[in-house]
Each structure stands twice: as structure tokens, then as C-alpha cells.
Design a binder for these strands. Structure first.
Lengths: 239, 239, 239, 239
DNA sequence: AATGAATGAGATTTCATTCAT
DNA sequence: GATGAATGAAATCTCATTCAT
């Protein structure tokens, strides 16, 4: 009772795009079940919407609409809005974490590793700018959602980078006076800032602030600074 | 319709506590100062509340309560919630902007200027961590709040720093391969990240992530990196 | 931001009826402030709506509409739906509790006291059937809202009645074999059931079940049963 | 058309636990019995869940989970949530109705009949307290669910009891001044209240209200009161 | 200037119900 | 018969904002 049983007969079909054609028995390459498709569809839509409007600036129904599903389904799969963001983080950081871990564990110099990570980050940004935008913009910036830091994948990235600097310290590759832990933070922060500034300055309304810096320029500057510092010239002594 | 409007006679004043009552208005010309007191009181409360709960995580009434005033007064002075945040930005960035401008205009080396700015930032953080937290945490991180960047005081800081690097470029103080604009972004980003990481790692629940790095260590590492880069040792060639 | 600041300018004039004329300083008979009026208005509406549709079957907005206020005001005053029900209980049980307490503390016989309570209950029902309906129908019947029993006013009624039976036990007014605590429960239950059955059988759709019993008949039967039991006649022995 | 239809491969059966498996279907013709098992399983689960959380406080899926079936099956068998509650009522009241009917039709005294019914009720409660709890707690307490009263089995019980009192009136077994119809209501109400109070006071958080009364004490008091009334002693005259 | 009652847009979330498989 | 993905009506509650006093 209470809920009008039959009053909700057929309610506007709503499902235009249909990415998974043959329902169930076709000899298709299995793997991605319909269920997973929907989940991914929603996750992908969440990335897009979060990137465009921000986590706080969008509604669950925006995500659902973008994904072409009913909003109820988002709850079905992700429990609530926070759960959705958490999943976006999980999924995408996991990818990055794996790659960074691999780099950190290779038998190359610290210099190489850092260059590779910078390269990786910029590549990722070029391939999936929206993902990076969300990862970076919504990350840890919210007093409430600070729990993002508890995310295992995120922690894994931090640990891998710290490992690299720690090792550099031992092998003498790291300059004197550079604290590995502090350097990890600054390194990640520099990367993050590069993306944030790029995202923000290429936002349309944003470009007034300053000549938007190209990504490439940013990358080169970052690497150069890591290697030789920013200050050069004849009087680059003392402090 | 359904317009209530029952009488609203006298509604029991409700604001008993008034923490900043007599304290300092005594020997001052009251009147204008009383007004400013309230304004400042609210602004100060806003900083505290924004820092603790985040802009999105708090209510206007939280700020009002913290300030010991009725929430209607916040609207009286600041128009709306956005206006309040804007004022927090204005007021506090203005202070920083002035200082940075002065540094940038002085007749010293780029190296000196940067060191002074780093010093200034860390001092500011030590003196008013909450203010810096808000300035940094709520800044530009919200796709919607991006307008913060339009803030003149903020722009002034960016411009001053860019000016320093531009000048460094001319005098040859800036290393080859370092783009002044990119470097401005990275510099500010590094500073920002230093504070963010500090705030986040000293948050109680946060310290598990990694050994929290001390502010001093962060400052030293940042300066060292600016001067000589992070990578040193025997094999610090090529790239 | 997020909330369209100016988009909600003037929304339908607002103050038509104005029951309390002189704002605040008039030498009127004070007492019911405008604020209290609204509170009471809402409470009264809640009783009506709860009685008609049941707590679960109505929406906060139904209550608000009945009261002629915006639903936000209900939250302003009562926090949430549960809080509203709790207040309905508080307020109304309090009235009954006072009366029952007075009866229990008087220096009359148990018989008199019980008769008075029965009388009181039936009078209350006749005067404010809706209130009694809510008090009785929503009371303790909900596994979730069981907390109603924690209500001090409710507890007070139970205690007063138990006190009466306990005293009757001592003075010998209570039959042998009658446990005072059990009797309290049965007494209250009988009263409650009388009202419930009345409410339910006079519900329109309900009257088919049985010839609806009149309230008066119910009252007389209840008192008679308390006095002499239900079973009489010549063979009323043994068990 | 436009039905989402993503593939939903095989979705992990989900029904591991099956408490009523082999027990009694062995020497019976399986097939139909398997069907009935499921039905009963669901009904039993419904009783448990309704008793624990209340009809309004539970979800169909809670019942399904408790029964170890998919929630779709509940709809298959019972149509909807209301249908499920109706079935719970039907099934269980039917049992009671039969027994009460038999008692009412026997050739004994009213006194005997009532005693037997009280006995029956308390026995039922002891054997299946959850069932009684649901029957009593969800019964007629909800303005919307009032339809429960239309239930034939429920009506049958009421009629049987009324028949007993009507007959008692004729044979003179019923005291003067006791209206049969009113007495039926009070009798059923007293029984009901006895159980409700027991359930409520033995609820854990509830026991603070008053010393929880034992079932046995309640039963004895009820019978005693039916026989002799509650008021006795020397001054039990007049009214 | 100051207060807080009053408003209501809007967002989140729940969950009964349908139905393809 | 069984399953559970998918849907969306509907309800609760939040809180920025207005405005009479």
C-alpha cells in the first residue's frame, strides 16, 4: 500500500544508447558482462560530470543522465554519492599506482625513475585529462572527504615515490640537504599543481589570469628544476 | 496561498553570550569601530569555520554562531555565502599581496626574493595556520569557486612572482630551460603543497599515511631544491 | 554560489492574515507569543493529520499544509518527523499525566480513583477524540518508535496507575489473586482497546465488522467488570 | 522496446542456505511440496522480520534475505508487500480462528470457554511469540492497514468470542450491566495488551519502565478479574 | 544595526515494483 | 519458477536567503 501498485505502468523508455548489443546468447567475446558494463558506464559518466561540475556541484541524477541510466541504479551499484566518488578514486588511482610501483621497483637510477613518473603523469593527463582532473581537483581538498587519503591506491603511490627518494638518499643521488620525505611531498605537489594550473587556466573563463602555460613547457621546467634547481647563472652560490 | 504569517511578536532575543563585549572598545571612539568589530568578528569566525569544516561543509549559521551573532547579520555585511568567502580571500590575500609586491620590487637578487617569499609564507603559516589553510584549501579547487582566481589580490601575488622569474630570466639568474611562467606556477604549487600536506598530515586521522614532515624540513628542502635541484651526486649528468 | 542568490527575490507577498496586531511593546495581554502560536498551530495540525492518515501515512508537508505554514518551519521547530511526533506525545500526555497524578494522590478509595480515571479518559476522548486517537494508535505500536515509552509523561501515567493498584493491594481493596503490576497493564490496555475499537469501528469502512459498540456502553461495561468481574449468575463458582 | 537489456549473464545464484531442505519432503510427492516449501519459507521469514522491525520498518528484500530467496520471488508468490502481510494474517489467524471456533461451539459453560481461550492464547504466545507479536502489533494499528480487519479469519475470531458472550448473556452467566459486544472488545483488548506489554517490556531497552510482569502473573490476573472483578475487600460495594 | 522566524528550491536517498532473462 | 538489474515515485531533510520587526 502507500505505493500505488499499478499506477506506474510503463514510464518513458529512456534508454537510447545501447552499447551492449546481443543480449545474452550470442557467441560474443564474453568478459565484460552487462552488469560490469553498466557499472563502468556509470563510473565513466561520474568522471566526466565530476570533472565538469565538481563533486559538490553536481547531482547524482546528472551522473545517471550522463550514463543513460536511472539514478536509482547508481545507488544500486555504489550505495551513495560518496561511494561513487570513492569508486572513481579506487579505480583510477589503482591504475596509476600499479604503474608507479613498477617504475619504483625497476633497477634504474632515481633520475630515470622520476623522469618516468613525470612522463607517465603527463601522458596520463593527455590521454585522460578528465580523470586526472577529478583525481587531482577533488583529492584531499575536502575536509570531509579527507578520507580519500586512506585510499589504499593513493597510499601506494605516495609510498612508491617516497621509496624512490629514500633509495636516492642512500645511493647519494639525492642532493645533500634534501629530505626524502619532504621531497616526496614537494614532488607530488609540483605535479599536482602543474595539472591544476593547467586545468584551471584552460578553463575558458580562466585564461585571463596569465598567459596559460603549455603542458610541455611545464613538464620541461619541472624536470629541469628537479635536476639543477631553478636558480642558475654565475652567482648561484651561498643561499 | 498557504501563507502563514501568524504573529511573530517578540521572539525571545536568544543571544545571551557575547564574548567580545567590552574588551577593547573602551578607550576607542565607539560607533564606527563597533561596526568594524562585528565585521571582523564574522570574518575571523569564517576563517575558523571554513578551515575546520570547509566551505561546503559548513553553514552560514555555523559562522554566525562562532562569531556570536545572528546569522542575519552575516547577510547584512557580506551579502551571501559567496561574498563571505570572497571577503575572506580579499582581506587575507591582500595582506600577503602587499608583502610579496614589496619583495618583488626591492633591488635584490632573484634568489633573495624567492628566499624571502618562502620565508614569508612559512612565517604566515606559523602565525595564522587557519588562514593559510583556508586560502590554500579552498582556493581554486572548486570548479564553481574558480572565480576566486579573479580576485585582484590573488592575481597580484601571481603577477609579482611571475615578475620575479621574468626578471630572473633577463638577468640570467634563472637556469636555462626554465620557463618563467611555468616556474611561477610550480613555485606557488610547491609552497601550497607544502602547507596542504602539513595540514593534512597533522590532522589527527591523517598521520598514518607517512611520517609527517616538519615544516622546517619542508622549507629547507624547498629552498635547496630551488637552488640546486633535487638530483645531485656523481652521476647527475645527462638527463 | 550553487544557490541562485537573487533568483528567489520576492515570493508571493507573504503576510496576509496577521493575528497579533501590536508588534511587541503594546500593553497587550502577553503570554502566547507569535512564536508559540506557530508552534501550537503546527502541533495541532500534526494531531489532526496523524489521526487521519497515521504517522507513516502522512508527509511532513501534509502537516505543514494543514497548519498553513511552509514545511521548512516544521523542521525549524521540531527538527524532524520523529521530533514532531515526540512533541505531540509530550504535550498531550503531559496534560493527561497531570490529571491522573492528581487523582492518584487524592485521599479516596481505589474504586473511586479508578472510576475517576475511566471517567477522565472517556471525557478526554469525547472532548478531543483526535488527540486520543493519536496517543493511542501510534503509541508503542511501532517497533522503531518504541522509544515513546521512554517519554516521561507516559511513564508518569503508568506509574500513577501502578501506584493506585499497589495501594489497593495494601488496603485490601484489590482482590486476592490480582497482581497490581499485571492489573495496571490490563487496566490501561482495556482503556486503550476501548478507544481503539471505537475509533476503528467508527471509521466508515470499518463498521461492517460488528455492531459498533457505543462509548457509553463500553465505559459501563469496563467499570462493571472492574467491580464484579464479567462472570456472574448462579454458577459463578469454581474456576 | 528500449528496454535496457544489458546482458546479465549468470548472476551467482545467491541461495546458499536452505534450512528446510530434506526434513520432510522425503516420503512425500516432491514437486508441489518444493513449491510450498518456498512459500512457507517466505511466510516464516516475514513473520520474523515483521516482528523484529515492524511492517513499515522492513523491506521486502529483508524478508527475502531472511528466507534465503531472491526478492523477486516474494512478488511471484504474494503479489506485493500488502499481500504478504495479508497472507501472514490469513495463515496465522486461521489457525487461531479454528481453535476459537471449536471452543465456542463446544457444550461447556462460558466460564470454561473463556478460560480455554485465555489458555489457548497464552500457549500460542509461548509457542510462537513472534507470530503473536506480529498479529497483535501490526493489527489494526495502522489507519491504512485497517483493512486487516476485513480479514475473514480475524472476523471469525471476533465473531466466535462475541457468540460466547452473547450466549452467556442468555444463560445468565454474564453479569448484569455487561454488554456482550463491549465485553468482546475488552476481552480481546486485554489479551492483546497483555502480549503487547510483555513484548514491549521484555525488549531490552524497555524494562526500565516498570518491573516486567511475568506472563503467568498476567494470565492469572486476567482470569481472576474476569471472574470476580478487580475490586474486592470489605468495602467493595456501591459503585 | 540586529535578529531569527519563515520560506522553499533542491538534493539525497529509499524501496516497492516490474520484467527480461 | 527464480533471479536481481533497472526504474522512478516520493519522502525526508538541509540550508541559503528574505524580511518583518
Amino acid at each position: 500500500m502507500a505505493r500505488p501498485a499499478a499506477s506506474r505502468a510503463r514510464s518513458t523508455p529512456a534508454t537510447p544508447r545501447r552499447e551492449t548489443a546481443a543480449p545474452r546468447l550470442a557467441p560474443k567475446e564474453a568478459g565484460a558482462s552487462g552488469r560490469d558494463d553498466r557499472r563502468k558506464q556509470i563510473l565513466k559518466a561520474a568522471v566526466k560530470v565530476f570533472a565538469e561540475k565538481g563533486y559538490h556541484g553536481c547531482r547524482i541524477s546528472d551522473v545517471a543522465e550522463e550514463a543513460g541510466v536511472a539514478y536509482g541504479l547508481v545507488y544500486h551499484y555504489y550505495g551513495n554519492k560518496d561511494g561513487l566518488l570513492a569508486s572513481v578514486f579506487d579505480t583510477n588511482w589503482a591504475f596509476f599506482a600499479k604503474a608507479v610501483d613498477d617504475i619504483a621497483d625497476a633497477h634504474t637510477s632515481m633520475r630515470d625513475k622520476l623522469s618516468q613518473i613525470v612522463e607517465l603523469a603527463f601522458q596520463a593527463f593527455e590521454m585522460a585529462p578528465l580523470v586526472v582532473k577529478v583525481l587531482v581537483l577533488e583529492f584531499g581538498r575536502n575536509a570531509r572527504l579527507g578520507e580519500a587519503l586512506d585510499n589504499p591506491a593513493v597510499a601506494r603511490v605516495f609510498k612508491a615515490i617516497t621509496r624512490i627518494f629514500d633509495e636516492g638518499k642512500k645511493t647519494g643521488e639525492l642532493h645533500e640537504g634534501i629530505d626524502p620525505a619532504a621531497m616526496s611531498v614537494l614532488f607530488i605537489g609540483a605535479l599536482e599543481t602543474a595539472f591544476v594550473s593547467f586545468v584551471l587556466t584552460h578553463n575558458g573563463a580562466r585564461s585571463k589570469l596569465q598567459a596559460a602555460v603549455s603542458l610541455d613547457s611545464m613538464k620541461k621546467t619541472l624536470i629541469a628544476m628537479l635536476h639543477r634547481g631553478a636558480l642558475g647563472g654565475g652567482h648561484a652560490h651561498g643561499l
